[in-house]
């Protein structure tokens, strides 16, 4: 579903990603781990099409299509979802209204009829259960005044409603206490299926105790320096990132 080959990306002339390659198939969950500043969030943002990232070389293919020239919304309508590390507050824009507009933009893109308010709300109520989201958050402005945990739940809730094919979760675990983490993880696990791929970007392996990945990749200094299964994450937790960096240098 997603193929990245030799991706090189610069931000303000500074090279962040230095030849990253990755292949994710439908139905898989991949975890990308790495120390701060290794390029994790850059990867997430580039996939979603954020401006200010200069792709100097490499290929990103989603469903065998090059997505470089696609606007963020076009990528979203094709099923790429980014759960933000720091979801922004948008005063005055109703949370549920944004979501309805988003759902219908995706449906129109797929050639499906737009949902009316009744059908939409039915889906919303169903999906809210997934992340045990408080109904009062629906009618507030997007993320405004939400706690850190509420913001993260809202992201997963949006994911559940939008049903993306490729979901990138950027440090969704950061700032969550253990209970909130479990709820979010359960939500994500429910959304796992054979048609959907999930990329978890995280610093700690804690999240991976609840969402077990098919593959784990270690990102360091703009490259994936080691890949493996869940065991790699546990090893990382025990030995730290320095160990693997040394190993990579030795190799």
């Amino acid at each position: 579903m997603l193929t990245i080959e030799n991706l090189q990306v610069s931000v303000e002339k500074k090279q962040i990603l230095k030849g990253l390659s990755l292949a994710v198939q439908a139905g898989e969950v991949h975890a990308i781990m790495g120390p701060n500043g290794s390029g994790k969030s850059t990867l997430a943002n580039v996939l979603a099409g954020r401006e200010g990232y200069e792709v100097t070389s490499g290929i990103i293919k989603y469903d065998d299509q090059d997505i470089f020239d696609l606007a963020p919304e076009e990528r979203a309508r094709k099923g790429i979802f980014l759960a933000f590390q720091y979801p922004v507050e948008i005063p005055g824009v109703n949370n549920i209204y944004l979501l309805k507009a988003a759902v219908n933009a995706v449906r129109v893109h797929r050639g499906e009829p737009e949902l009316d308010a009744v059908d939409f709300l039915k889906i919303v109520r169903e999906k809210m259960q997934l992340v045990k989201m408080d109904e009062s958050l629906l009618n507030r402005s997007v993320n405004e005044g939400f706690s850190g945990g509420e913001k993260k739940r809202n992201e997963i809730f949006q994911m559940a409603v939008l049903e993306p094919r490729l979901a990138i979760l950027d440090e969704t675990d950061s700032g969550l206490d253990i209970d909130a983490l479990k709820i979010v993880a359960e939500g994500v696990n429910t959304l796992r299926n054979e048609n959907r791929a999930i990329v978890l970007v995280t610093h700690y392996q804690r999240l991976l105790e609840y969402i077990v990945p098919d593959q784990v990749h270690v990102l360091s200094d703009g490259r994936i320096i080691k890949s493996g299964d869940r065991g790699l994450a546990i090893e990382l937790e025990e030995k730290g990132y320095d160990w693997i960096k040394q190993e990579a240098r030795a190799a």
């Binding site: 099409g49 954020r50 919304e73 005055g92 824009v93 209204y97 944004l98 507009a101 933009a105």
Partner: peptide, 24 residues
């Protein structure tokens, strides 16, 4: 950031601006 957030959710730029302005 606000624009990008809306666009990431599939809303085109013009509509995103209208939404944000109307929200304002």
């Amino acid at each position: 950031d606000q624009l990008f957030y809306c666009r990431q959710r599939g809303i085109d730029e013009e509509d995103a601006i209208n939404m944000i302005v109307n929200g304002f």
